[in-house]
Design a binder for these strands. Structure first.
Length: 186
DNA sequence: CATACCCACAAACAAGGCTA
DNA sequence: TAGCCTTGTTTGTGGGTATG
């Protein structure tokens, strides 16, 4: 599932994704060297970035800009670089009880799932259903952005990755965000 | 052991794009 | 338009390895 890549490339890709998510600006080698303290020079980072661009993990908006994560880069980040946490047993029990109920209509299932998620998380829930010509999401992750806000990263089944800043509660922790995402993810 | 070669890395430089 | 930021390329250096 995750292509073989040395640890240094993984660190650089993680830095690019995290910095791009927080700034929404292309990330340069010098920026990475300065902000993430990887113990290597910008020139070395540039060489690694060049390799990762060949692999299709990052891309360059224009000649003199930094790099941004490609769809494949986001996918790799979500699948291979993000650490997943387990769901608490009591939460699992609630989900299992609710999901075994017989519900005939799809709209009711969606509404019911959304309501359950909101009750479990005390947050706004979002349901994305498959639509003609569009794809459903494959994985979802939330990344803390600033107090009261998080970045929602959605990886669709066709590999397309979308992200959006969403409002959350002031006191929601990163662990809680991860738990919410785990409810959606397989 | 001495030498040659390869590889990784860093520094310096030129060039292109963006912005105030 | 100047200054800044970024990239790609070139060059030099140091460490590891192979060979005679």
């Amino acid at each position: 599932m995750c292509m073989q890549m040395d640890e240094r490339k993984k660190k650089i890709l993680r830095a690019i994704v995290q910095d791009y998510i927080s700034t929404a600006e292309p990330v340069g080698s010098r920026t990475i060297a300065r902000k993430f303290d990887l113990g290597i020079s910008p020139a070395t980072i540039r060489n690694e970035m060049s390799d990762m661009e060949e692999l299709g993990l990052i891309e360059q908006p224009h000649t003199s800009a930094g790099r941004i994560p490609s769809d494949a880069g986001y996918r790799y980040y979500v699948d291979c670089l993000l650490e997943k946490s387990s769901i608490a047993d009591d939460v699992k029990d609630v989900i299992e009880k609710e999901t075994t109920k017989r519900i005939a209509e799809i709209q009711t299932v969606i509404a019911h799932s959304s309501k359950l998620l909101s009750e479990l998380t005390h947050l706004t829930s979002i349901v994305i259903g498959p639509d003609k010509g569009k794809s459903a999401f494959n994985q979802m992750h939330f990344l803390p952005y600033e107090p009261g806000k998080a970045i929602m990263v959605v990886v669709k089944e066709n590999g397309v990755v979308e992200n959006q800043i969403v409002e959350i509660g002031e006191n929601v922790t990163a662990e809680e965000l991860q738990r919410i995402a785990n409810v959606f993810n397989p």
